[in-house]
Amino acid sequence: MPLPTAFDGYVEQSKRVSPTFLITFERNRYSVPASFASRPVSLLIYPERLVIVAEGHVVCEHQRIIERSHRHPGRVIYDWRHYLAVVQRKPGALRNGAPFVEMPEAFRQLQGSYG
């Protein structure tokens, strides 16, 4: 007798990616690869992570941020890699773009050359 498949416990929501490549969940915003701007995606909500799926493929994941206080504004969680297509077209975006605050050292050096 075959073993049963593992239970994959998540809740799914439909979302539309903003023109600035973000989706909103529980007062926080999470980045999505630039190629999905203004497109529908599925958000798979796990207790510890969020998985974004489009066209039947996982396009990215983020650690889920759980804030219990409603006194503070929601956070924006960026993955700088989601914005590389934008940088190819507009290198100056490295200068002061919020998604590029946390990058590997090689990219920080490149960022300095545009500053």
Rank of each mutant, 00 (worst) to 15 (best):
P91T: 05
T24G: 07
P91D: 08
R81E: 14
L94R: 00
V17M: 03
P104A: 08
V101I: 14
P33R: 02
H82R: 00
G112L: 00
P19S: 15
L3R: 07
L43Y: 07
Y46S: 13
G112K: 01
M103K: 00
R71Y: 11
I45D: 13
A93C: 08
G112V: 00
P73N: 06
G9T: 15
A37R: 07
A98T: 13
P19I: 15
Y78N: 10
Q109M: 08
E55P: 12
A98S: 14
L43D: 12
S35M: 10
P73E: 06
V59M: 10
D79T: 08
R39W: 00
Y78M: 05
E105F: 15
R16C: 00
G92F: 07
L22P: 12
S69D: 06
C60N: 12
I65L: 10
R71V: 01
A106L: 13
P2I: 14
R108P: 05
D79K: 03
S38K: 05
T5Y: 03
V101R: 06
A6P: 04
V17N: 02
T5P: 00
R64F: 04
R75L: 07
V32D: 10
I66Q: 15
P19L: 14
Q109H: 11
L84F: 14
Y83R: 00
V53W: 04
D79I: 04
I77G: 08
V11T: 15
I77T: 11
A37C: 11
M103T: 12
Y46T: 13
I52E: 14
F107C: 02
A34E: 01
V11M: 11
T20W: 02
A98F: 15
E102H: 13
A106E: 15
F7Y: 15
E105S: 09
I23W: 03
E48I: 05
T5D: 05
D79G: 12
H72Y: 09
V76C: 01
P104H: 03
P47L: 09
R108E: 12
Q109A: 08
L94Y: 03
L94H: 01
H72N: 09
F107H: 01
L3D: 14
H82M: 03
H72R: 12
R71Q: 07
S31G: 13
G112E: 07
P2T: 12
P73S: 09
R71C: 06
A98I: 11
V59A: 06
Q88E: 14
S42F: 11
V58H: 04
E12S: 13
Y114W: 13
E102W: 02
V11Y: 11
I45K: 01
H82V: 10
Q111I: 03
Y83G: 04
R95E: 07
E48T: 12
S113A: 01
F25R: 00
H62M: 02
E12F: 04
V59Q: 09
L94I: 02
R27K: 05
L94T: 02
C60S: 09
M103W: 03
